[in-house]
């Protein structure tokens, strides 16, 4: 089996695919790529199915060397790319020879970039997924972040690469990111004051942002609700801890929780939030589940059109 040598892993690089399903009651989060459309577009560029895993790099600062020649593509947050020290195009599929060094560095916007290698990262699947869940110590190479010197197994490559076209760009960043959410859970329990803090004030992404969730700061949303019986969280759930600063729960979230939640951010906005850097301003706006469906459908359609 061919391998990918990780010369330099970077701060928080993990193996990710689309994540696990059916493990919530066990207490295992779904994990999976924080920017799922970016994962899918990379899979598509290399002619992969939706099962192949990639390397997710947060604020990429990574160098790899393949043991045998392969194709690579980088998607998600834009990066600068060098092959054996020479600048290369970061939006095309590149052919890399055995022993060549591929260096990847984050640029000025976005957080998560994905390095796809033809054949996919072939670490063992746990509950049908190769995704790493660091807190639970499962998936990836050893249930943890990639480390310098790691050697990742690569699957056998599929020869019919779709095209060397540009990868799907990140949605343009806006001065204020709108987080549309479906109200639910304890929404009805919010006081008028808490409701106006949530809906009318602006929040900022803090540095407490990772694969578990993104903590925001701003006008505190004090619910007055102290303890709730533990219940399921969900992707995008807006959790309101005692200090009133909302935390939006993402892929590696705790599967149950006892903090009040006024609703959950829709998936396409969760992806944008995951890619937002600290300091990004955000606002919340309620939407109906039907509106959420429509937005999801349009984004799916856009992705498919781009990749056709």
């Amino acid at each position: 089996m061919t391998v990918l040598h990780i010369n330099r892993a970077g701060a928080a690089s993990t193996v990710q695919d689309s994540g696990r399903i059916g493990t919530l009651q066990l207490g295992l989060p779904p994990s999976g790529a924080m920017d799922h459309p970016a994962l899918v577009s990379g899979q598509h560029l290399l002619g992969h199915t939706q099962d192949e895993a990639a390397i997710e790099m947060a604020y990429a600062n990574t160098e790899v060397t393949p043991g045998s020649s392969c194709l690579i593509a980088v998607t998600g947050a834009p990066v600068s790319l060098w092959v054996d020290g020479a600048p290369a195009c970061d939006t095309e599929v590149l052919k890399i020879g055995a022993g060549q060094r591929v260096s990847i560095k984050a640029r000025s916007h976005g957080v998560y970039s994905y390095l796809h290698v033809s054949g996919g990262i072939a670490t063992p699947a746990v509950f049908d997924s190769r995704s790493t869940s660091v807190r639970e110590g499962i998936g990836g190479l050893a249930g943890t972040y990639l480390r310098d010197g790691d050697q990742l197994p690569i699957g056998s490559a599929n020869s019919d690469v779709i095209a060397s076209i540009a990868s799907l760009p990140l949605p343009e960043s806006a001065p204020t990111l709108m987080l549309r959410f479906v109200p639910g859970f304890q929404y009805e329990l919010l006081t008028e004051q808490a409701m106006s803090s949530l809906l009318e004030s602006e929040f900022k992404v803090t540095s407490r942002a990772n694969r578990m969730g993104v903590a925001l700061s701003g006008d505190p949303v004090n619910t007055g609700v102290t303890s709730l019986l533990s219940e399921a969280t969900c992707y995008g759930a807006i959790q309101l801890p005692g200090d009133g600063n909302p935390i939006v729960l993402l892929n590696d979230r705790q599967t149950v929780g006892g903090y009040p939640k006024p609703g959950a951010v829709i998936r396409s906005d969760c992806r944008r939030l995951a890619q937002a850097r600290p300091g990004q301003r955000v606002r919340f706006a309620p939407c109906t589940p039907q509106e959420a469906d429509r937005i999801a459908w349009l984004e799916q359609h856009y992705l498919e059109t781009r990749l056709r």
Binding site: V182, P183, G184, F185, E231, A232, C234, Y235, G236, A237, G263, A264, V265, I266, R267, P289, A292, D293, A296
Partner: peptide, 12 residues
């Protein structure tokens, strides 16, 4: 019965 995000339904 109410929503739990865009893909969830919650019974309490």
């Amino acid at each position: 019965i109410g929503p739990a995000g865009e893909c969830g339904i919650r019974l309490v």
